[in-house]
């Protein structure tokens, strides 16, 4: 197994799709490139239901987004099916809150907020949203397309103005520091943000905690005592079944309070040489089960 970190990803995709003998596995294929892999004679596309989630991180530090009605209105404005179809080429799953729907902490009876512009407008009006108040929507370059789609939804469904700010790559570290250190007010109402679960044993420890706990790096708003209590119970609960139940309660709380704008869970897409048997893993890139067939370039001389 050789990690070729000296090959540009775009070049690597070309090599796995159009040749054999150079590159066997390319991860992080974009949905836009998925068709190229599917049409390839040399490669297969592996789509993995990954422990990844894209959401709009809501700045709850001040009015009007400190009002749950406003946050619910934003969620009701989102057309998740269109987002998944047009931005992710279908390679994503809608998500009700922050737990991926295939994780064991996802509550069974929780459905994503419906696309309901009328109810969204009603809630926004009830909360007293000022007509001249533009929503400040920020995004990093990797999720800019999501932000542009989301801005369209907010404008069309709620009739509000949206100003998009794309954070340039050269400013990313400074922006990350501002978000994590929390010493300065952050200059956005909603930040489109992609995250993932690494440890997998308990997604709320890595996802929900990071966004909403008092010690969470991405929390932008006041601490919720109910959230703190549930997370406090989690860290001393050694019974997996009970831990899973607490995880579901955390996800339901996050949903009820509409703490983020919940969007989708993108699939991880991997291009794999046709002679390689690769097993996709939800949380990480695992290669222990990977095998090559007798027709693989590395075995053609009887190896």
């Amino acid at each position: 197994m050789i990690f070729r970190n000296d090959v540009d990803p775009a070049e690597a995709l070309g090599l796995v799709c159009d040749t054999e003998g150079e590159i066997d596995i390319v991860t992080e294929v974009s949905p836009a490139d998925a068709g190229r892999v599917e049409d390839s004679e040399h490669a297969n596309l592996v789509a993995i239901d990954a422990m990844r989630v894209v959401s709009g991180l809501v700045n709850r530090n001040s009015a009007p987004l400190d009002d749950v009605r406003v946050r619910k209105a934003l969620n009701l404005a989102v057309d998740r099916d269109r987002l998944i179809r047009e931005v992710f080429s279908g390679y994503a799953h809608p998500v009700a809150a922050m737990a991926p729907p295939y994780s064991w902490e996802s509550p069974d009876d929780l459905e994503p907020y419906p696309h309901d512009p009328e109810e969204g407008k009603r809630l926004l009006s009830e909360a007293g949203w000022q007509p001249d108040r533009a929503l400040r929507l920020a995004a990093t370059g990797d999720v800019e397309a999501v932000a542009r789609h989301l801005a369209e939804d907010f404008r069309e469904a709620l009739g509000i103005e949206v100003r998009i700010v794309v954070i340039p790559d050269e400013d990313l570290v400074a922006a990350q520091r501002a978000l994590v250190e929390k010493n300065l007010p952050v200059p956005f109402d909603v930040l489109v943000h992609a995250w993932f679960d690494l440890a997998a044993g308990y997604p709320p420890a890595v996802i929900h905690r990071e966004y909403f706990h008092s010690g969470g790096a991405f929390r932008v708003g006041p601490v919720l005592q109910q959230f703190e209590d549930l997370m406090g119970r989690s860290v001393v609960e050694t019974d997996p079944k009970k831990l899973g139940e607490i995880g579901k309660q955390l996800d339901k709380l996050v949903y009820d309070e509409a703490l983020n704008v919940f969007l989708c869970c993108p699939q991880a897409l991997v291009a794999v040489n046709r002679h390689v048997d690769f097993t996709g893993h939800a949380a990480t890139l695992e290669l222990a089960e990977t095998e090559v067939g007798e027709g693989h370039w590395s075995r053609r001389n009887g190896a």
């Binding site: 990690f3 970190n5 090959v7 596995i25 390319v26 990480t284 890139l285 290669l287 693989h296 590395s298």
Partner: peptide, 21 residues
């Protein structure tokens, strides 16, 4: 073990995936 597999992994956690593998 047989064969050789060349992997290109542009994920930002590539360093961790190498560690785990």
């Amino acid at each position: 073990p047989v064969g050789t597999v060349h992997v290109v992994d542009p994920h930002p956690l590539n360093w961790l995936f190498i560690t785990w593998n």
